[in-house]
Design a protein around this nucleic acid. Sequence first.
RNA 1: CGGGGUGUGGCGCAGCUUGGUAGCGCGCUUGCCUUGGGCGCAAGAGGUCCCGGGUUCAAAUCCCGGCACCCCGACCA
Length: 574
Amino acid sequence: MSKLYVRTLREVPAEAETPSHRLLLRAGFIRKTAAGIYTYLPLARRVLAKIERVVREEMDAAGGQEVLLPLLQPAEIWRASGRWDVYGEEMFRLRDRHDREFCLGPTHEEIITTLVGNEVRSYRELPLLLYQIQNKYRDEIRPRFGVMRSREFIMKDLYSFDRDEEGLERSYQAMFRAYSRIFARLGLAFRAVEADSGAIGGEVSHEFMVLAGTGEATIVHCRACAYAANAEKAEAAPAVPEAPSNVRPEEVHTPGLRSVPEVAAFLGVPPTRLIKTLVYITARGPVAVLLRGTDNLNEVKLGHVLDGAWFRPATEEEAAAMGIPLGFAGPAGLQGIRIIADPAVMAMGEAITGANRPDYHLRGVVPGRDFRPDEIRTVRLAQSGDPCPRCGAPLAEQRGVEVGHIFKLGTKYSQALNATFQDENGLQRPFVMGCYGIGITRTMAAAIEQNYDEEGIKWPLPIAPYEVIVIPVNVNDAGQWEKAHALYLSLREAGVETVLDDRDERPGVKFKDADLIGFPLRLTVGPRSLAEGRVEVKDRATGEVFAWPLTEAVRLCRHYLETMRAKLQERAGL
RNA sequence: CGGGGUGUGGCGCAGCUUGGUAGCGCGCUUGCCUUGGGCGCAAGAGGUCCCGGGUUCAAAUCCCGGCACCCCGACCA
């Protein structure tokens, strides 16, 4: 320990907010070099190496072959795919001495597709699965949470090349299984969820989420069946339509009441009886979005409805210019604006809306009778309690950290880059591709978000930087020191990754550091247990404390670690 | 990029309003003491007060310009 390059911090650096960021800094795993750029110290390096090792084993087992690709990439291949202009500010760009343009690779579809397109001629060579584990660079608008959202990060990416959709499906399924094995082997609780494929393209996509209360992603999942999705993607079974009411619309005076809860309380009705009208400015003109009072807008889905055109909420002034008083907006009588209604709104038999007149709402509004939207599209965010789209049981929400994402890309890149092979009929066809990423550095952070307490990190055994720390309570006591040192040497000899805390520090300091760094097992050699010829054992994850006879310690320690591993394997169903 | 905030020994901060000597806690070094949960005592080392310009006899402090970093938002693995 005295030789290990680790400096723990007693006080929390002011810049750290999230648990993983704070603990990685405090426990001496990382140091910041610039915003979103970190130096990884020896402890972190060991964790990353362990994660990478499991990833390599599973990628190889699934038929992947590792390559190293350039981080510095010429602009021309990005121009060829059309992404040089599309990628925008997020790409680090630079020029060489001849003024040629380059970028630091934010991802590697272009490089790999160009490579394979130049090399692979025949369907007989397919499928081909190539992967890399390397740094990637993205000039994030706002790096944050330490290593969770940094500008330089380590990522594993595998690209699959198949001859057709069936081949892609096989590759995709193989990767899905490999990913499930990886996160299980790392000792992490995770969930695979259906995801929106976003900017990278393609139709089908799954994210692998490490479950953690501090995670930034919301997962919606079914308690009864296997359905789980990113909240952005999640669906709910359609609302049951109510019989339309035959009451007539009537204005009510609602002075200064602009929000759904206020109006509902004032009128003495549940907020589900209200329709809220959101006004957006978009690249295609103004849009009014109608949602049930208790629903929230899913901006990703609205984006799809708008075919990816940009949009933002209208300001009070902009809405007023269209004759819409924000807070009192309603669909009835709206002119000159595209109206998009969520199906849940259309299922309402009678509702309360804004009256498009300051300080007035309208009750007795019947959707379909008193207003007709231009489009009925699902734009609400699925939420806890909604019926599952598969089985109807109530949905629940969880938080998670996205650590893996798998996509079916299809022929998007192979067509753009003219990467083709010859099929058995002699025809040139574009490769059908998939891409499968794992954030290695982010996985380290996610593991902490899932496993920590007040005192520090509780590393899952498979990725802990070391497995065991041996602490002599007093290194100046010859008996303790000799026993501890001997124990340390025999553990190492037995293949246990062990650290000896040989520092002449007070026991409290050593215990605190051991808890902070998160060694899964702590063996204490001190006067209490030594008197009985025992060593004291503390399991960091469970907090259990017990003792082993010193003479049996090595054997029992190995056995204990083996049992921990076996439990993980069992839980993983491996 | 919009809004808010911060830059003072390694870390956490005070001092700035009202200009004049740079201070506290932790850490670090040395000695004594102590050894089962970040002991105790004593003596030390360590600072371009983010950078540049201006005002002034005098600037950490006031003014102007820049840079860096953090938080909230839009964006994302």
